[in-house]
Design a binder for these strands. Structure first.
Lengths: 352, 352
DNA sequence: CTGAAAGCGCTAACAT
DNA sequence: ATGTTAGCGCTTTCAG
């Protein structure tokens, strides 16, 4: 009730912000009808629908997202959780996700998961995340199956990129094959001491992709009757600087490698840089193969394994959006083929 | 009404989702007190606040963001609008923004503004954006002052990165100085025919940064008593491929340049690549200077102009968040100093 | 096909 | 210091 009769009877309201009631009034129908008409629900006479839509357009009416979220329980937004936002791989994934989401009328909220603490908060809902988004795509941020099951139980829709999951759909590549492909290439060229630049030195659980690639690396060795030397496995953190440092270490070895399998092009770039500074001839004295087919690899003539990362993001988003209507989508796996792109940084070792 | 008496009498409610009423009941207080206690508002006895917070924690209660958004009108989310999401510059900006926002408890929603249509939709509220976010940072997506004023009138808080604005705060660098610095460096080395790789060939309004840098390029020439040759201004679209193509064109000229000022490192990378393929000696036959100080520039030994992009994003976010409480923040300009980093891709021209 | 009304969960007066 | 209650703007039975 308004006690101060006649004084500012209407609440302070931003001008131009038409509500559903305004539209209803202007169209001479009830708010329920407006809601139906606008969202394309059935049981609305065509003439009515038309009129309502016209009026809504005139008033440039848009349903308040918060209000409809409150009423429906859906936020029309999805989240994309990535360890780091800059960095070639992740920004491409995000780009793919965003494109699809925007197209579908969903907002894309980015969630940086750089620390273990952020990772925990996210999964344990300390963060209240699943009130803010309808679904989540995890990009190479990995959780135990138990944790994921927990999410599923709370009705959060998830798609993972990179790591595969037994509880949620996922898209990625065959990382074992990646490791095998790269290593095989090197072995075929005649290399016997092949170093590998891997990811973070953390709990394997948090990032299994390097492990899979390492597995492929191992398989290639085994198949060729070669033994792997643990000393040749160095952490490069998937960064240029990390790759640089890693190779620096490797070259200090008594018996340094003749070839390097870098699990990302960025690490390979770092490796190349160090080689240049040290005046090491690539590929004569050191062969280098990367993974990603970064747009700059062609520039440095890097042999690498191609994958279409932006497409991974797009496909993941599509899967997620499609799955939103189903209560528990099957944990399908979408696996993109990968292939080796041979360029100039790999060749036979000098002393073959 | 539930017709099947006795069956599932309570509404379908996700388990574990405590509401403010649950907390109130459990703590033996009213919902208003819970609200106050949890948000740290005054007028709550310490003992009460403690108890409420404890109970809330036990029930792992979190205010439903949609509900509070509806009640308060604030969404606790900010948007960051970028032309493209992959690409070194933009992903770094977004990373900076996200870090600050997350820290402050705000969600970061990314908005790709690749098409003119998306640009229009966003600004004209066809998108309903300002119901979804409290503030917006525009990253090198430029609008007329009129359009921006329109946004301000609708109480949308904005900070721009790159382009400066007379209506909203902005952070960036002195782009005229960037152009001058790069060009001067080349002129001092003795170059007289200096090409410039610019941005999009679109409406200047949509992207003034290249224009400012071009201005600096012009000033440097004028100060040195040199004339600029329009034929040496080529569009490179700020991409590696664009830079490659642009230089390809330049070299076809009757009187090709001896030096190139690329407005981004990525274009410079493309230029370097082409030079390599053509066996053009850099810097002997072609000097190249970029802008950004991309982490890979050191790798290709690129002379460039350094700027801290991630920091731009962080500062913009901070300004935006700080300004949220003020009705119309002053259009301050935060300008980061830039400096030339001389590396190996620039040197005196052969025929000095 | 359309309307009335009861929420959705929270905040913010206003009372006490 | 705490409680009551009226919205916020929309969706969704349920009635008609």
């Amino acid at each position: 009730m308004n006690w101060v009769t006649g004084l500012q009877p209407q609440p302070i309201r931003r001008p131009g912000r038409a509500t559903i009631e305004d539209v209803a009034a202007a169209a001479g129908v009830s708010v329920a009808t407006v809601s139906r008409a606008i969202r394309g629900l059935p049981n609305v006479a065509n003439s009515t629908r038309e009129r309502v839509q016209r009026v809504a357009a005139e008033l440039s009416y848009r349903a308040d997202p918060a209000a409809s979220r409150l009423a429906t329980g859906r936020s029309q937004a999805i989240g994309v959780a990535v360890p780091v936002l800059n960095g070639w791989y992740f920004s491409n994934v995000v780009a793919g996700v965003e494109a699809v989401c925007t197209e579908a009328g969903y907002d894309t909220v980015v969630l940086g998961i750089s620390s273990a603490e952020q990772r925990t908060r996210l999964i344990h809902d300390t963060d209240g995340i699943h009130r803010r988004i309808d679904g989540l795509v995890f990009v190479d941020v990995s959780y135990s199956e138990d944790e994921l099951t927990g999410l599923a139980d709370r009705h959060l829709h998830v798609v993972t990129i990179g790591v595969r999951s037994s509880v949620f759909p996922s898209v990625g590549i065959d990382d074992v094959e990646v490791g095998r492909l790269a290593t095989d290439h090197l072995i075929e060229l005649g290399h016997r001491r092949i170093a590998v630049l891997t990811g973070l030195a953390e709990d394997p659980l948090t990032f299994p992709v390097p492990l899979r690639r390492l597995e492929g690396y191992g398989i290639a060795h085994r198949d060729a009757g070669l033994a792997v030397d643990p000393a040749l496995e160095v952490v490069g953190n998937f960064s240029v600087a990390g790759g640089y440092e890693a190779v620096n270490e490797l070259l200090a070895l008594d018996d340094p490698p003749t070839a390097i399998f870098a699990m990302s092009d960025e690490m390979a770039f770092g490796a190349i840089q160090l080689a240049r500074e040290r005046r090491i001839d690539v590929p004569r004295d050191l062969s280098i193969v990367g993974v990603d087919d970064h747009e700059l690899s062609v520039m440095v003539d890097l042999t690498t394994i191609h994958q279409d990362v932006e497409d991974h993001g797009a496909r993941a988003a599509r899967m997620l959006l499609d799955g939103l209507s189903i209560d528990r989508p099957a944990p399908t796996r979408l696996e993109d083929p990968v292939h080796l792109v041979v360029r100039g940084t790999t060749g036979p070792p000098r002393a073959t």
